[in-house]
Design a protein around this nucleic acid. Structure first.
Length: 270
DNA sequence: ATCGGGACCTGCTTGC
DNA sequence: TGCAAGCAGGTCCCGA
């Protein structure tokens, strides 16, 4: 479910409930997420004030005076704002109570994480992440330098979080379609103008998705239970065998490194 | 250094 | 209708 736009929207929705508030309760129903939630966490963070929230790639970071909680939603995670004593839904594993508001982590597949880091920027999950796609440092010159010797398909490269963070399968498919680049094209073979188009496409698609409130695939809704509308704007993802909006050719579906890939064989030539 | 595949999980859809 | 197989938005880790 969650890619960068969904994580951005979730972070934004959680801010009023958390920022400037003291964490009064931390209830952990299940520790066995992708990595075990530390038993020591309540002792470290209870009674601390959360100064602000930020996003890095697809990680949501709750900053406290003595460190930070790093949360990831994996494939199926979401946060929900509610009251402390609301009935528990299935797969709600963690609850933080900030003064008047509760924040619950819901994650059926448990691919997400909820970790403590004394210094966020030194944490192994954060330290090697590539540039944010919406920042100026992610540009065609940077891409040229990173792709020069890479033979793998361009789609794999733009989904590599060490190269650029936050671009997942849906938005990789969409960006390549918008830039009219075949997903299997070896990364080192992109021409200068293709790299320019690709960087523009990634930025455009992500910005549009944030404005639209993210993608409502399966069950995505933001922490305020608002659904997203970007899925109605998807040009290729989830549209295999349907007609290309640009040229009406039926869209092709292939699998690249195990990930579902949809493209237009006419607009995106190898 | 780079690459592809396996692994981690549950729930929904598809096909027999 | 029932069951099993296949598939899903992520990404770390391993061996090659």
């Amino acid at each position: 479910m969650p890619e960068l736009p969904e994580v951005e929207i979730t972070t934004h929705a959680l801010k009023p409930a958390c920022e400037g508030k003291v964490l009064g309760q931390l209830r952990i129903n299940r520790r066995d997420l992708r990595w075990a939630v530390s038993e020591a966490l309540p002792g470290i963070v209870l009674g601390q004030r959360c100064f602000f929230l930020s996003r890095r790639g697809k990680y949501i970071i709750f900053h406290f005076s003595n460190g930070a909680i790093i949360a990831h939603l994996g494939m199926s995670g979401s946060f929900r704002l509610c009251k402390e004593d609301d009935p528990w839904r299935q797969h709600e594993h963690i609850q933080m109570v900030f003064e008047d508001c509760a924040v619950r982590l819901h994650d059926p597949r448990r691919f997400g994480c909820f970790l403590w880091a004394p210094v966020v920027n030194e944490h192994p999950l954060i330290i090697n992440i590539g540039p944010e796609p919406l920042m100026d440092e992610f540009n065609s010159e940077y891409l040229a330098q990173k792709l020069e010797y890479r033979s793998s398909p361009i789609k794999n490269c733009i989904m590599d979080s060490k190269l650029v963070c936050g671009v997942g399968n849906i938005y990789a498919n969409e960006s390549l379609f918008q830039a009219q680049i075949h997903p299997l094209l070896p990364a080192s073979r992109l021409k200068d103008e293709q790299r320019v188009l690709l960087v523009q496409a990634i930025k455009n698609i992500l910005k549009s998705a944030i404005v639209a409130g993210g993608c409502t695939l399966k069950d995505f809704e933001s922490a305020n239970q608002q659904p997203g509308y970007f899925q109605t704007d998807l040009a290729v993802y989830g549209r295999k065998n349907r007609h290309c909006y640009r040229c009406a050719t039926p869209l092709m579906h292939i699998r690249i490194s195990g990930r579902s890939t949809v493209y237009c064989p006419s607009c995106q030539k190898l």
